[in-house]
Every structure is written in C-alpha cells, then in structure tokens.
C-alpha cells in the first residue's frame, strides 16, 4: 500500500527527470541577481579583451607629441599618456592581457592541483607524502619570490624535443606559465583534504563492495564530487592571476610588448607627482571592477555549488 501512495504522489506532483546538483546550482545562480550582474561584467571584459586588439591594432604607433599627457576631454574621454596615445584605448587593450593571464594560468593550475590532490588523497601512503612534500616546499617560499625565481630561471633558451626552441619567459607566456606552476597549491590542498573525506564515504564503500576497483572508483565516485572545488577555485584563482600580472608588470617584469594595466600603473607612477591622475585612475578602476566581479561571482558560485551549503 505504501507503494501505491508513493506512486500516485510521484505521478501527480513531480517531474519525471530529477534535477542534478549541477542543474540545481545553475538554477540557484540564475536566481541570484548579483551573481548575474558580476557574470555580465566578466563577459563584457572578456568581450573587450577579444575585440580591443582588433579595433585598435595600431594604437602603439599613434604617437602624438602635440598632445602629451592631455587631460580628459571630449575627444579623449580619459586623456592621453606620455606619448600622446589614447588612454581609453590603452585601458581597453589592457583587458586582453589580464584575461589571457587569468585564463591560461588557471587552465594550467586547476587541473594540475586537482589531479595531484585527488591522487594524493585517494592513494595516501608514499604517493601522498611526495605530493605533500612538493607543495609544502613550494608553499614555504613567498609567492612573489617564487614567481621572480621561475621567471629568471627560464629566461634563457631551453631544450625541447631535440632542437633548441626559444622559450621567452619574459613576456606574456612567461607570466602565464610561472603563475600556473605556482598557483596549483591551494587547489591541491583543498582537493586532497576533500578526497580523503570522500574516500571514507559509505557510497565509496558500497562501490568497493560491489567489486569496483581503485582507479574506477576515483573517476566515478570521487572526481565528480570534487569538480565543484575546481570551478570555484577557477573563479577565485582568476583574481590572483590578474593581481599577480599587474604586480609583475609594475616591476617591469611582466609584459613589455603590449599595454597592460600593470604597465599603465608603472608608467604613470611618475605622472602622479605632476597631478596627472587619469592613466593610473583608468587602470585602477579597470582592475577594481574585474577583481570585484570575480570575487563576488566566486563566492556566489561557492554558495550555489557546494553541496554542504545546501538547504541552509
């Protein structure tokens, strides 16, 4: 009889297909106006990052010595820089560097951190010891020093597949690789701890009881329950990557060949004394907005995705 009651209830009131935690999280995000606003800002930045280099391909050469450090005006809404070039265009072009760095660094760091963390947490023993040793050692060096060290260490040519290729770690790819290589640690730690917890879950035990083997449990039962950590860290890692790029460029160790917000701040630091605030102002506002948007979006994403925060 119990079945009868349940069946009728289902047929009457409930949809046939359920909502997975993923689609559940997606619906929560859709209802979250602030998250949507942040996402829109991020999309606009991404759009600018793609469009700006196409719209202003010759910006670097549009030098105007009659108009150095001009104040904002109708024709130049954000003024001009020390070479008389448009700061509005410079700021828009800077988005490209930031977004590229954020994306590439995370594409390197997140999978690296997740794979290492999951392996360490799941297998334990000496494998765990090695990975923990690796990230503890790396984590004990201050981040900036590590960044600089990696950049300087690989500034020369490296051997690659039998012939000499130039790997110029001085430019944009250098920043991306250096950032990617050092910023997996946080993700790895989190994923390792979560894996150790998941490994003890009853459903993992149930899978073992029905004869599933080690690697297959890892892929079927553990990694799907870790993916949300990767996604959350991706969005939060973006912020770190953007700030790191700005800082490196400020120290003249970042990109040299194209405009970036870090270089703008670096270039403008002397102008500030002369009361010329517009270049530094434009870069700061640009950074502020994207960092804020990613931060809030990351938090909202965590609220929506983390199964532990459900039903609170």
């Amino acid at each position: 009889m119990s079945d009868l009651v349940e069946t009728t209830r289902v047929e009457q009131f409930e949809p046939r297909t359920g909502r997975s935690l993923w689609s559940d999280a997606f619906h929560r995000l859709l209802r979250d106006k602030i998250a949507i606003a942040c996402f829109v800002i991020i999309c606009i930045y991404a759009g600018i990052a793609i469009a700006a280099p196409m719209m202003f391909p010759d910006w670097a050469n549009e030098v105007d010595y009659d108009n150095l450090n001009a104040r904002p005006s109708w024709s130049e809404p954000l003024g001009t820089d020390g070479f008389g070039r448009s700061i509005l265009q410079k700021t828009l072009l800077g988005a490209n560097v930031s977004m590229t760095v954020g994306l590439t660094a995370n594409i390197i760091a997140i999978p690296l951190g997740m794979v290492l963390g999951a392996i360490a947490g799941y297998y334990g023993g000496w494998i765990d010891d090695i990975i923990v040793w690796l990230y503890s050692t790396l984590a004990s060096i201050p981040g900036l020093v590590k960044l600089l060290a990696i950049k300087f260490a690989f500034i020369d040519k490296v051997l690659w597949k039998g012939s000499w290729y130039e790997l110029d770690l001085d430019g944009l790819p250098g920043i991306c690789i250096a950032l990617g290589v050092i910023s997996w640690i946080g993700t790895c730690r989190l994923v390792r701890a979560e894996t150790m917890k998941l490994r003890e879950m009853d459903y993992v035990l149930a899978a073992r009881a029905s004869g599933r083997g080690g690697l297959s449990i890892l892929f079927r039962h553990i990694i799907p329950n870790l993916l949300h950590i990767g996604i959350i860290n991706f969005s939060l890692g973006f912020v770190g990557a953007i700030s790191a790029e700005v800082f490196l460029s400020f120290l003249n160790l970042g990109v040299q060949d194209r405009p970036s917000w870090g270089r703008m701040i670096s270039d403008a630091k002397m102008q500030l004394v002369a009361g010329q605030w517009w270049e530094i102002g434009a870069a700061t506002v640009a950074i502020f907005l994207i960092v804020l948007a990613w931060n809030i979006f990351g938090d909202r994403l965590r609220d929506a995705l983390d199964p532990k925060l459900r039903n609170v």
């Binding site: 119990s2 079945d3 349940e6 297909t17 359920g18 909502r19 997975s20 199964p307 459900r310």
Partner: peptide, 13 residues
C-alpha cells in the same frame, strides 16, 4: 517499493 519513474532523479530529492 519505489516508482520506476525515479530512475533519472537524484538522491537529494
């Protein structure tokens, strides 16, 4: 004692 309709649903439901 569960409906066959439940096949595509998730535990939290």
């Amino acid at each position: 004692g569960l409906s066959k309709m439940y096949v595509n649903r998730y535990p939290h439901e």
